[in-house]
Design a binder for these strands. Sequence first.
DNA 1: CCAAAAGTGTTCATTCTACACCCATGG
DNA 2: CCATGGGTGTAGAATGAACACTTTTGG
Lengths: 250, 250
Amino acid sequence: MLNDENLDLSEKRAQFAVPYYEISYEKFFQFGLSVDCVVFGYHENKLKVLLIRRGAAPFKGEWALPGDLVYPNENIDVAARRIVQDLTGISKLYMEQTKVYGQVDRHPAGRVITTGYYSLIDIDKHDPQASAWADGVYWMDLDDCPSLAFDHDEILKDAVQILRDKVRHRPIGFELLPKKFALAQLQELYEALLNADYDKANFRKRILSKGLLIDLKEYQTGVSHRPARLYSFDEDRYNVLKEKGFSFEL
Amino acid sequence: MLNDENLDLSEKRAQFAVPYYEISYEKFFQFGLSVDCVVFGYHENKLKVLLIRRGAAPFKGEWALPGDLVYPNENIDVAARRIVQDLTGISKLYMEQTKVYGQVDRHPAGRVITTGYYSLIDIDKHDPQASAWADGVYWMDLDDCPSLAFDHDEILKDAVQILRDKVRHRPIGFELLPKKFALAQLQELYEALLNADYDKANFRKRILSKGLLIDLKEYQTGVSHRPARLYSFDEDRYNVLKEKGFSFEL
DNA sequence: CCAAAAGTGTTCATTCTACACCCATGG
DNA sequence: CCATGGGTGTAGAATGAACACTTTTGG
């Protein structure tokens, strides 16, 4: 599995009687590091993901996840935020790591390992813009994604699975909705996310029983049926409950 | 945030009219990559973790998680298995990524980003051995861990939390037990893992109702009380159920 | 026969599910 | 007054918690 021509660390340590951090291990410091972001949005009952058309080689012109190399003096989570902000203009958003992709041959330019991130944004708040490394940015239906460059198909697939897992146990779904929303919107979102179908009455009872929604005493306007009551997510209360070991669970 | 002296990728692209992978981006390829493993075990009602005493600088002589630099031609998950196998002699084991740690200053030797892994092993099956980079390997009580080198305290803390989260939704706890076990053992394990206390009758009903245990029709011997029935985990059936979207949940 | 731990059954409370029904608005 | 979706109540089933009880072994 390992190439003998490459140094064996222990051997090298024995060879030099100086602390190992004083030796220049050039061969060990030749990795590139990148970040690839799966940005989810939700619009008209559909889960969407932000894709770019690559403006530079490799894979120029192909579909890909937004991502970039990390600067040697840049923290990795800062890099992830930078990328999404470049494309969406949104700076404060929910972001989380998914996995690291470290296959030797995953990048044609050399040994680049990449960290997947996913984030959730309220699609109405943003205005996608091409950046230096992209020819264009597009919201794609998740069910209707083209094949992607590099190993981005796998990164996307993993992110979707992790999101679905997570959303059942943590109230992250709210990030995809506007600040004020009706319960039916929330239900539709969960149905789209989890590909499920819930009873209206039961869904309401379950959600409201968590005590994490603020009743805004406001209502929809201009709809030709009974206007829905609007709610917002009570983040402060959630943080308090979380401290005490509270779990969201659906 | 970013240092101007460092190259701006888009600028560089404009500057050279050749594909970007043909340019040598030395400055981007100077990261080191490592892997740090949180190896959990379980013995006498206590959750344990495998720690080493570092045999080399930096942090020589201090406690740390087993970890090592990844070779430039080595896949990252292979590296993780290599490390645990060096220390425990076990090759086939449950391993999973936790997070990436990419803080700029986390390693004194340069920009080394590390990937956390955790694994679960049946403690009776293994014989910990010092390797080239460790002066000794020890099982430590999780509640009684010393302070660790690098950012390993954080890596350990995260792994524990991820393990606790995971074990409630996936049947990974079985990895910590011998192949054949009694229900009481399983209950004690879950109680130790989740720091909880379950009613014996109810725990049994819940576990057995999942239909994932094989009744071996074998019994404990040599105990001065009614001998317990032995079970094993039905991995095949679990994989079948998982396909159909089954969730373990406690 | 006793101690110790395995293993079971029953009751009561809580939660979940399905479904029927009422309410408010625009047209 | 109708269509449309918002919003509520309830009965029965399923699940969960608490606890008492029986069983089997070694000593």
